[in-house]
Each structure stands twice: as structure tokens, then as C-alpha cells.
Design a binder for these strands. Structure first.
Lengths: 335, 335
DNA sequence: AGGTCTGCCGTGAACGTTCACGTCGTCAAA
DNA sequence: TTTGACGACGTGAACGTTCACGGCAGACCT
């Protein structure tokens, strides 16, 4: 009839269409569809049958408008391709599902996009946000207005809630382990992303300086491939090293490969320690010693914090909304 | 004032609140917020300032109701923890973002849930669905009504769109490679999930039978750990094998580990071939030979198909809505 | 002066549901 | 017969936006 029958989203049939087809009122259709009382079984079935025939699906917008909205939270992460993030995302989705929230994921890694693009896309669609936002947590919170944002790994903390990591503690853990193993020529294989991530490197440098150990720092994109090439260059440059501390497990795995390619034995000639404790670490040969984070805990913690923020039981930007998590050293084969 | 100031979702302020505060009408606020013309710069800035102060964020429901909805598609996957799925999800998110769609992810792996639970959660929230739904694609399509579903790896094809894989072709690729390498005692390490996934195993068995090769089949959960244990048992059982074909790369990686634990050299004593071609395969030692799928292509294909279905340029359940993708053999070190 | 244009702003209507009522029977008890 | 209760169903209102208008000044032209 009207031009909107061409509507790409098949939301043609409305509740009124069903009501007309069944010869009843809107409200009766509502009663039939939502399992409410106050309707006879025969009518209910007839209405449901008609609804199915017409392909009627209630508008989530109209529903959301009139009822209290079902909460949906945005999840902004830089790169689903890095195993750390899906592991994290998985636990967020799990915790959110338990609360009947749903999760809108935006992976802002592909283009040249930054986290803010993801936030811009997500902001009109969600009631709250969880994300690795780099240094942009302040702007992100501004875009979200009163709706709470939980930022991870962003020590400055412009967001309503902040979850950060105790890098000095982690660095000390690794350093102690390496030193007590007799290692002295340590390289730190850093990510070249800068931003808050750089605090991993500077924490390591500080701890090493404190212990009187010189650390060679080198940089690469946070992927296994880039790390492999960087370590390759490092080896070729002739610098003596007997241990590599990597920005994350993915880079550690790349380092492992480069060392093996270069004829070095691990951990014999050179130890390797990764960071974050992703499952991948158990599949390399040798298996990766790593500063592990319990990723399920991280995701759950983020959702718990968000819940507290939403319910008002924790004040935004208050000390209680700022959590610090610690890594744990898991000693496997590589160091 | 009213009790709804306790609203957990901070959607207190409406457009009317802003209008009242600024002493203007709704429409002027709309003009100010949406960068529309027909408003003076001073008024625009005043309104925007007031809006920010009140923490006003437009209701996505009201907006969606009156404007044509922004499309959001559900993505139902069994397990974000298996690297295959995030790789897939990543490409779906990328392709969807390019179209200004957004993606609601549901990972139905954690509980004892099946894909249908995910669909039930997703159905009221989305305009379309992409998913690994096992054998439930028919029910899923029914739940979604007229809204299109693209099901992956579900040959029966109850969904509007179907993307499946040519397993006989892949099996032949692997078998040829192994046979030409002189392997004759082949084990197929299958997933114990059953469902359409089982077609990988039966295709392999069929191809092997055709070539006159006996294949030992064993089963495990589709995780590296379970595969490792299964292969461990296999080795202990004393069966002679000189090649393992695995259900996926994760299981192949587990098999690798078990072989190494058991003192077997790979590929010397036993070859290993994985399936799907996830990045992890380049990080094991030896690197994994695998039947690779270009995962970015798979995701993009799914979104393209969904787009065609939504726009009506492809008829649901028509032959054009049924795509078959082929694996490609990538020979690395393990076979 | 009369006319038109343009910039700024306001008002009804519509989007598709659900909520809180209201109505109309029918049947049983008083 | 009246009363009350109850089951089945319908009707206005509301949710918060945007769209399509309409109005009202002032500037500018003839």
C-alpha cells in the first residue's frame, strides 16, 4: 500500500495489523503475545497464529520506550584479533548475560580509528560503556554524559569507574624471578602504542633501575609478527641478552619464535616472560612463563563495578570506583 | 521531584527538561542537538550547554521509533574463548561497522546453554542474526520471524541464508598431502559436540575410505586441553599412528603438545594437520600445517549475504542464499 | 505602502508499544 | 431481583523523539 512496504528491515507488521487481522484490540494482542492473563486460550492461539503468519515482531523501540529499558552496555576494545581481548570480552558477556544485559561490541582496531570513534558509534546505542580507551577515557565519559563508563588500564581516570593494574608490582615479580635465576642482561619488548600502555614499560624500567639492572628497551606493534621481527633485529644487532620481558603474551610468543629461529634455546640461552596469561601461553613450546591476570575476574569486576555505578551504590569517580588489580607470576617453561 | 529520579539508568532528563531550562521548545532543542539549520548560533550553544549540565542524552528508543531504525545485528557464537570465533567475530564487526550497523554479541558457551538461548536473548533486540547455531537454524529463523538469519556451518539450512563449507574438498586436500608424504596410519581427532560439526569427521572418513585408508577416530571437547588428553590416551593405548588430522587448530595444537610430551617428534614421527587457519597456528613449534579458511572473508561474506537478504536483492532460502566456502591447505612445519 | 523573502522559532501529529483503567457480559449467591 | 465477583476484552493516555507544517518578525525590493 504505502511505500514503506519496501522497508529493508522487515518491520512491516505492527500490533495494529495483527489486531485487525484477528478482529481484536491492541491490548488483546499484547496479552496474547506476552503470556499475560485476561485472555481466553482460543483467542490467544488464534492471535499468535495470525502474528506468526504476518511475520509480526514487536518493535523493540516502542517496547523500550514505554517499559523501563533493558540495559545494554557497549564494549569498546581495540582488537578482537589479539587473544587477550576476546578472553576479556567473553567474561564481560558472561557477567552481563547473567544480569540480562546485552552487550554491543565495537572493535576499533581495523581502520585507523581510535577508541573515540568506537565510543561515538556506541554512545547513542547504549546505557553504559566498558572499554579499553587508552588515554581518552575523559572524552569518552563526556560523550556518554551521565551514563557511566568503566575504563580499563587508564590510570589518569577520567571515567566514572576505573580499573587499573599494579604494574610496579608485576614488574617486581618478574624481575625477582629473573634475577634469582641469574639473568642479568634483560630486554624489555614494549608495545609501540604509547598511551597508558607505556606505563608497563616505565614501571619495568623503574623497578630495574632500583635493582641496579640495565634494561634494553625495544618497541614493536603489539602483535606476534611484529615482535618476532623486532627480536630478530635485536639478535642481529649483537646486543647480549639472556632474558626478554614482553609487553604481552602475544609478543612473548613472537619473541620465542625469533629466538628459536636465531638458534637460541629457551630458557637455556634466553628466558622469556610474557604478560596477561592468555591460554595461548600453554600452547607454545616451551610453554610461556607469564605475569598472569585472571581474565574472567577482570571482566566480572568491570561488570560488577558498572552495576554498582548504575545502581548508585558507588559514586562516580569516588575512590571506591577506582580498582587496582594485580598480576600473578605463573612459572612455566620459558623462564 | 517524582520517584523516577531514582532511575538506575541515568536517563532522567528528557528533551522537555532541556527545553524548559532553556526557555525554548522541543524542536529547538532537537535543532540544537542534531546540528540542524534554522537556529541561531547563540541559542544553539546555550541549549547545548544546558543539555550537558542536565546530563541529557536522547532516548535511543524514542529516536529509533520515529526514525527508521539503525540496523543492529545479533551475533551468536558458542565460545569466544576459542580463537576461531573472535577472529570470525572481528571480521563481522568490521563489515558491520562499515555499514553503520552495530553488533550485539552473545556468547552462549559458558552455561549449559545452547545456541537457542542466545537467539532467545537476542531476538527482541536485533533486526537480523548471524550465528553458528548448530542444528538449530530452523528454530532460530522461526524465532526471528521475517527478520533474516544467516547460519554458518549448518548444511540442512533452515535459515534464510546459509554459509557452509566444502568438507569433502578439504578432507581430500589433507588426505592427498598426507598420502603423498607416505603417511598411512591416520587418526582423526574429532570434536565430541556432534551436530553439523560432525560432518567434518564423516567427510574425512568418507574420503579416507575412498582412498582405501583406515582412519582411527577419537573424540574430545573442542579445546586444546581436552585434545591433549585425548591424544595422550591414544598414545598410551599403543595404536600406531603417523598422522593426526584434527577438528580444528586448537585441537591440533593440543595434539602437538601431547605428541611432544610423549616423546614423539613432529612431523618426523607423526604429522599434524589442523583446520581453520587461526593465527595461533603460526606460534606453535613446529608451526601448524592447516586447512585454512580466510576468516576475514567468512565474516564479510556473512555480512554481505545478510545485507542482500535485508535489501531484498536475494530471496530467503533461495539457492543464491546458500553459499559454500572452501578451505585451502597451508603447508607449514607440522606436516 | 505593499509585497516577498528569509531567519528563527513553535505546535500538532506520528512512531508502536504498554499501563491503568473502563465496560460488558455471565454466573452464583443473597 | 439485586448484588457481587470474575472473566474477557476495549479505550485513552503516556513514553520521548522527529517530521511537516505554520507563524512572526525584520530586511529588502518595487
Amino acid at each position: 500500500m504505502s511505500t514503506r512496504s519496501q522497508d529493508p528491515v522487515g518491520r512491516r507488521a505492527t500490533i495494529m495489523d495483527v489486531a485487525a487481522a484477528a478482529g481484536v484490540s491492541r491490548q488483546t494482542v499484547t496479552r496474547a503475545m506476552n503470556g499475560m492473563t485476561g485472555i481466553s486460550e482460543v483467542t490467544r492461539e488464534r492471535v499468535q497464529r495470525l502474528a506468526a503468519e504476518l511475520g509480526y515482531t514487536p518493535s523493540r523501540f516502542a517496547k523500550g520506550l514505554v517499559q523501563g529499558a533493558r540495559i545494554s552496555v557497549g564494549l569498546a576494545i581495540p582488537d578482537l584479533t589479539n587473544p587477550y581481548f576476546p578472553a576479556f570480552a567473553s567474561s564481560v558477556v558472561e557477567a552481563a548475560t547473567q544480569r540480562s544485559w546485552n552487550v554491543v561490541v565495537d572493535d576499533y582496531g581495523h581502520g585507523t580509528a581510535s577508541g573515540l570513534d568506537a565510543v561515538a558509534r556506541l554512545a547513542p546505542q547504549v546505557d553504559a560503556l566498558i572499554g579499553y580507551l587508552g588515554e581518552h577515557s575523559g572524552e569518552a565519559q563526556a560523550m556518554m554524559g551521565r551514563r557511566p563508563v568503566v575504563a580499563l588500564d587508564c590510570p589518569e581516570g577520567g571515567a566514572a569507574g576505573n580499573i587499573s593494574f599494579d604494574y610496579p608490582y608485576a614488574a617486581r615479580l618478574a624481575m625477582d624471578h629473573l634475577v634469582s635465576d641469574g639473568r642479568s642482561d634483560i630486554a624489555y619488548l614494549d608495545s609501540d602504542q604509547g598511551g597508558p600502555a607505556a606505563s608497563r614499560g616505565s614501571a619495568t624500567a623503574a623497578v630495574a633501575a632500583e635493582a641496579g639492572i640495565a634494561v634494553t628497551r625495544c618497541h614493536a606493534a603489539p602483535s606476534a609478527k611484529a615482535a618476532r621481527e623486532a627480536v630478530d633485529d635485536l639478535l642481529r644487532s649483537g646486543v647480549r641478552i639472556d632474558a626478554i620481558l614482553a609487553f604481552n603474551d602475544l609478543m612473548a610468543a613472537g619473541a620465542l619464535k625469533a629466538l628459536q629461529d636465531g638458534g637460541k634455546s629457551v630458557p637455556g640461552d634466553c628466558a622469556v616472560i610474557g604478560m596477561d596469561g592468555i591460554p595461548l601461553g600453554e600452547l607454545t613450546t616451551p610453554e610461556l612463563t607469564t605475569l598472569s591476570l585472571d581474565l574472567r575476574t577482570v571482566g566480572r569486576t568491570a561488570v560488577d563495578l558498572l552495576d554498582a555505578l548504575l545502581s548508585g551504590s558507588v559514586e562516580a569517580r569516588s575512590p571506591a570506583a577506582s580498582l587496582i588489580l594485580r598480576h600473578e607470576l605463573i612459572v612455566r617453561r620459558s623462564a
